[in-house]
């Protein structure tokens, strides 16, 4: 058995799972199942930014591999494809080289929304959440504009805002708040709260919060605390970002 190739297979699949936003227990379980299907007895440990896999056989030196996971968003399609491929490989372990080939080409199998559709998603979320929080039709349209601004900034502005989640969220929240304030002053929006809250829903760390609690309940306390810290940071960033234009607005 070629341990190196097997390790690479596990690491590549694990890395993709992690960067699609899967929970820790799902990543660990999938890699363990996959490597067991190939007759190895792996030890796997994952934290939100790192994945460790080690293999040891009785009369061979132990080998181990570490994989750093960069900052990532959520990509449910990639998650589903990874899961599907992992299940296929577990049921029918094809030669390691072929499996590796399939894992490295997973991204090609994934459908991806083009940026216009994702922008439409931002518009839809903010516009309908404004209505949801008791806004009127003009509020819905203004919130949609705020959402488009955040969407553009999130999709194309990463070079300026950087990958630091705290700074990026502050910028986005400030953008939302400033747009909402300006639209209110211009007489388009009628209800500042509905517009701001509706638009902030795209930034609120609901996903991270749910994930954090899920990790803790699943027993991965370390990852759970890590994600909880992220939630607190993002929430602070939102509060800070929203407050800035409102404070400045009082003097205009």
């Amino acid at each position: 058995m070629n341990d190196d190739k097997l390790l690479a297979l596990g690491a590549e699949l694990g890395r993709r799972l992690m960067s699609s936003g899967a929970e820790i227990y799902r990543v660990e379980e999938s890699v363990i199942r996959l490597l067991r299907a190939y007759g190895a007895e792996p030890q796997v440990f994952a934290v939100p930014s790192c994945l460790f896999i080690s293999l040891s056989a009785p009369d061979e030196p132990a080998v181990m591999r570490m994989c750093r996971i960069p900052a990532h968003g959520t990509d449910i399609e990639l998650l589903e494809q990874c899961n599907c491929l992992c299940r296929e490989l577990c049921r029918n372990p094809i030669p390691v080289e072929e499996a590796f080939e399939q894992v490295t080409h997973l991204e090609d199998r994934c459908r991806k929304h083009n940026p216009a559709v994702v922008l439409f998603g931002y518009w839809m979320t903010t516009a309908f959440f404004a209505l949801f929080f008791g806004g009127t039709l003009p509020d819905c349209l203004s919130a949609g504009l705020c959402g488009l601004a955040v969407g553009l900034c999130a999709l194309f502005g990463t070079r300026i805002t950087g990958s630091n989640i705290f700074f990026r969220t502050t910028v986005h929240a400030a953008l939302v708040s400033a747009f909402a304030f300006l639209l209110l002053r211009a007489g388009v929006a009628q209800n500042l709260e509905a517009v701001t809250i509706g638009s902030l829903m795209v930034l609120v760390p609901g996903v991270a919060l749910t994930n954090a609690m899920r990790e803790i309940m699943a027993g991965d306390i370390f990852s759970g605390l890590n994600r909880t810290a992220e939630v607190i940071l993002v929430a602070t960033a939102i509060a800070l970002g929203t407050a800035l234009p409102l404070i400045l607005g009082q003097y205009i």
Binding site: G73, T74, D75, I76, E77, L78, E80, C110, R111, K112, H113, V117, V118, F120, G121, Y122, W123, M124, T125, T126, A127, F128, F129, L131, F132, M201, V202
Partner: peptide, 23 residues
Amino acid sequence: LPCLWASLASAGFGLIFNIHGRG
């Protein structure tokens, strides 16, 4: 109406999370 707005807004989120089709 609130439920309708909630589901439409969440469908928008689904687009951001790259969810396709029936999902």
